[in-house]
Design a protein around this nucleic acid. Structure first.
Lengths: 349, 349
DNA sequence: GCATTTTCCCAAAGCGCTTTGAGAATTGGA
DNA sequence: TCCAATTCTCAAAGCGCTTTGGGAAAATGC
């Protein structure tokens, strides 16, 4: 059943039926009700293709899932983010279109989406330092929100980010308070903006205590379990291994834990671990006392906020760019404890 | 630049330009080349909205991401699956539309997608036993492929599945060969078809050795880390704890490992673990000797196969349904070893 | 050389909606 | 009662493509 058939059936013009269904005021309540009832009864829903052409809007938001040829890695937080954002899109009648694309084709894909009119806006994931996508999208005039921020980009744009710097400064300070002096950082991929901010926070924390960063115990890589395992082993093999490790995600933390297990070491006792926890739905760091001490910020909630922001930006294109900075909470779990020296002192009374 | 402008510029009709771009034979090679060059030069790409209306095809595939209100759980294998499928869609000029939807609204969403003409086909994820979505989609005439199968559905339909039954029978037999007699099963959610098949395989393995299933050491739940942890603790607290555990996914296996760690137990030595490994990109079970002994089948590869199958089904609607059964490989890792009794015997020579 | 194909291109009619610009029908005011 | 204002409804023109049904020009066959 299409609009023509429905209006023929009702003895009304297509105009009136369309207006009744879309809530325009030019139609009497009586008629509107009659139209709505008939639509429901006949299972009528306007053809999305026709509606899109007629309105010029796609009623869809684009997300690019970049898949690099080399590492073949999909960001594990992606699905939780999509769950959050997609929920909001659905509530607002928008579709979510997901483009799986190789890193190198990303710019071209944005161009295509814009020219084809396939989406009304896009979300930019995983911004790098001085990310060129921001200039591109601004030039294309395609509304967008960045999940994260991009340092060294001078123009103003919509973004939503966790206060990574403060979170990691707090995590560092927390470990310092426990007496740790040699604290390693297992960070995300170099070049990623969030990783740079987390490093800065870590550095802030150390500096505040009069300490300097030791580059030997700072590393950057894609956040896989394997990375956590290998890197933790390497750290433990050092002449003076760290007494604590800050890890950028729960996934490499699993690997770190495995490395400790291999050596019969216990987190929280033999070595302290603080993680950044995105609160992944299949990997909850909870329980009476959470497994890990963590700076926590729900990526799913971030997805919801991102969607709201983008929909607002599409609705009101002439408003100034919007920004939202979320604070992570620092929750204490089982994976941290006093540094060995402090422990010794305490024991000696 | 739209088609009209492009054809005006070229001094050709819209018909000719459209045909030239879409590879129809009614246009001379010389003209085609001229059109193609001009299109490239002016960055012309046909408007997706108009194309969709004119052709009646959506050039898009739908995936539902079901998010249950209660458990708020997103399947962690989802993103890898999408990465695989989405790659193929992109190669074939299709978009991927992702609908985040509450469990209870799933049927309605399929109806909407079909009526609105928003997609040309859909992928059904996580089929349950006697899944009603299959009948619904058949009735709607919306092409679909099920990732998995649904027992007790009598009609024929497109599916692609891992041979879960055989994989779990092999895993069980493998553990039996190592001397294990008390083997626990940490399965997926009851009601899921894959979980039922895995249970059957487990049962097959035990029966073949003249053993029976002990329901006390079989459990069904959503495959989270927390589940693996809690359940492993419960198993170890039994009067006669199992000497081996088969775990349906790497995620709960992490939890199991954590439970073992808490007690100072080592996988492969104190207790054996076999997992089913979906080969998640951020959670590779590899290395010189993989961490886990596993039945492995790449969910990403399954995504690619599913996409190919669905695109073929859309292209050739009158072909009979297609099916593909993938075998999992059994790879030996560090998490399995001889059962205590056997170990004792071997030691005694 | 003429009739017949074949090649190449075009005008116009959709696809199923929204939206513009007006025209009936109704209501209210004097 | 008549006229103006308001309310309700409609015909028709798009939106930017594809595709049908021809028709002119060029190539072929006799």
């Amino acid at each position: 059943m299409n609009l023509k058939e429905l209006s023929d059936y009702l003895g009304l013009s297509q105009t009136t039926v369309s207006r009744a269904l879309n809530g325009y005021p030019e139609v009497s309540e009586k008629t509107r009700r009659r139209v709505m009832d008939a639509a429901r009864q006949h299972d009528y829903l306007p053809d999305a293709r026709a509606k899109r052409l007629a309105t010029g809007r796609a009623m869809a938001i684009g997300h690019l899932l970049p898949v690099s040829k080399e590492h073949e890695m999909v960001n594990p937080i992606f699905s939780d983010f999509l769950a959050g954002a997609g929920k909001r899109y659905a509530e607002n009648g928008f579709d979510l279109v997901l483009s799986v694309v190789e890193d190198k084709d990303e710019a071209e894909t944005y161009r295509d989406l814009a020219r084809r009119g396939a989406v009304d806006g896009v979300v930019v994931h995983g911004p790098r330092i001085n990310d060129e996508r921001i200039a591109l999208l601004t030039e294309l005039g395609l509304p967008f929100v960045v999940h994260g921020r991009s340092s060294e980009v001078s123009t103003d744009y919509n973004w939503i980010d966790v206060n990574n710097r403060r979170a990691f400064a707090r995590a560092t300070a927390f470990l310092l308070d426990l007496g740790h002096r040699r604290i390693a950082l297992l960070n995300g991929l170099a070049g990623m903006d969030f990783a740079a901010r987390r490093f800065k926070g870590y550095q802030d924390g150390l500096h505040a205590a009069g300490l300097d960063v030791d580059p030997d115990i700072v590393s950057h890589a894609e956040m896989t379990e394997t990375y956590g395992y290998a890197r933790t082993n390497a750290l433990l093999d050092l002449d003076t291994p760290p007494t604590a490790i800050i890890i950028s995600s729960i996934i490499p933390a699993i690997g770190a834990r495995r490395a400790l297990g291999d050596r019969g070491l216990t987190p929280g006792k033999d070595i302290s671990i603080v993680i950044h926890d995105d609160d992944l739905s299949y990997f909850r760091n909870d329980g009476d006392v959470p497994t890990y001490t963590a700076t926590r910020s729900s990526v799913r909630a971030a997805g919801e906020e991102t969607a709201d922001m983008l929909l607002a930006a599409i609705r009101e294109p002439h408003q100034p760019p919007r920004q939202l900075l979320l604070e992570a909470e620092l929750t204490v779990g089982q994976s941290t404890g006093a540094a060995p020296a402090v422990r010794q002192l305490l024991k000696e009374g």
